[in-house]
Design a protein around this nucleic acid. Structure first.
Lengths: 186, 186
DNA sequence: GTCTATAATTCGATAGAC
DNA sequence: GTCTATCGAATTATAGAC
């Protein structure tokens, strides 16, 4: 692991655990056992670190959802691919996903406006899949907006470490079952 | 509205929107058009305000879930009551619920430890309802821990303003349908 | 890349007059 | 309850030597 990688590793953990605002440059330096001034060898500012991280993660999600939408899969299979995407990202980059979901509000000005637009676009893509599924008869006739937010909210818990360590295929299957068929026996 | 109520109103909005750490005493004073020193007529410290708010909300949730568990309702009806609880609280106190879910990590030391215990106890109660439902045959044979986190994660989105303004009965019904039966037509 | 030193600002909170 | 004034600490960030 290079020093830059070690740096990223430590910063991600701290911001994920304590939150962006509550993580100070002193905290980071202390965890790295170096002086605060050294941190600026790796980043230009704390704010820029957050911006770059969030838009990098945003790009990953958009790239993947675009691939899913351009596929010829049926809407229910597309939705399962969305679930797979969340399980995989949350498994491989739990801290990055956690920060993406929890810390975006600390972006400022232009960056915040841009991020909100991207988030809205992403939700639109999920909604489109659900709409297609209703039209094709795969899904019930639903309140699309509500269900979109519901689904995304459900998937939010995935980055929490304790649940993600299990077999991802098994996890993906259990989550699909929950979202598609619920928990009732009737 | 008394001055204390107006004070609470402003502080809740700011902390909900910006987060606890990003909301400064100067922000609050500015929104109230008064001096920072005046704020200490209403609270002893910013930290104590958060503590009291979070444990008050925590108590509300526990009181309500205890009532539900002591009822003679079947597990599926109990789960619907849990959903009703979330819809109602999120409708009546969206900012308080948002802060409860997002800002608890900024508690410190003893308070944080106590809050985590309470949160764990609450999750145990939800798990118990699900376990009972599996035993009674109302629910499928599920990974209880996973489904508990899933359900609570689903209900997280409720405090977001835009969705909560609709008829709460209708909302409750749509959410129950989602959690109990999913979105699939098959 | 690392350190010392420090600038410049912001933060929570208090003292004391009115 | 409100204001002025201010303290002491914490915060982000930079300059410059090694």
């Amino acid at each position: 692991m290079t020093k830059k990688e070690h740096f990223n590793n430590v910063v991600l953990s701290l911001i994920h655990e304590r939150g962006f605002k509550a993580t100070t440059m002193r905290d980071i330096a202390s965890a790295l056992k170096c002086d605060v001034s050294n941190l600026y060898n790796y980043i230009s500012s704390k704010q820029v670190f957050l911006e770059e991280l969030l838009f990098m993660m945003n790009d990953q999600f958009h790239t993947r959802i675009d691939q899913i939408m351009q596929s010829n899969l049926t809407p229910d299979k597309q939705l399962q691919e969305v679930i797979r995407m969340y399980v995989e990202f949350s498994h491989q980059q739990p801290r990055e996903v956690g920060i993406l979901l929890n810390e975006w509000k600390h972006l400022r000005g232009e960056q915040l406006a841009r991020f909100n637009k991207e988030k809205h676009k992403f939700e639109k893509k999920i909604s489109a899949i659900i709409k297609n599924g209703i039209k094709s008869g795969h899904f019930k006739s639903l309140n699309v907006r509500l269900i979109t937010h519901f689904m995304l909210s459900s998937l939010r818990m995935l980055f929490i470490h304790s649940e993600i360590n299990k077999n991802t295929l098994q996890l993906q299957s259990e989550i699909s079952e929950y979202i598609l068929h619920g928990i009732s026996n009737n």
